[in-house]
Amino acid sequence: MNFEFIPENKRKFEEYLKRYPQKKAVLLPALWLVQEQQGWISPESMEYLAKLLDLSHAYIYETVTFYTMYNKKPIGKHHIQVCNSVCCWLRGSQETVEQIKKKLNIEVGETTTDKRFHLSTVECLGSCGTAPMMQINNDYYEDLTEAKIDKILKELK
């Protein structure tokens, strides 16, 4: 599938070019635009950015794979990322992970068959004071309890 920025993103891309003394610096912001537009960073979108930014496809690929937040393949509509790092563990994040696994009937790293949910565990999200917590797409859900998780998952259906 070919990739091209929608006009709105093309405009933002042009705007970003003015913010940095070198074109290459727009790579991360541009990758964010790609991900906003189609949910993941496809090989075609990397080709597209390579042309726009005069970078090699290999360079872009290397950069993309360094960062955990760029999706290298399409994932479920709602990407659930439970923090299972040091301080969240102290407040029971492992149970949170188990509860969500059971409710969605998937393992960590899997997508539900209806493609609605993808479950990951991640390292500290800077929300240790409201643990256990998770991020779903752009939103944080904090001070989780089992009842709260039920409600959140139901509302996202």
Partner: peptide, 12 residues
């Protein structure tokens, strides 16, 4: 002075 935000992408 101009200030811009630059978003990281998940790397401590």
């Amino acid at each position: 002075l101009d200030i811009y935000q630059h978003r990281g992408a998940g790397a401590y």
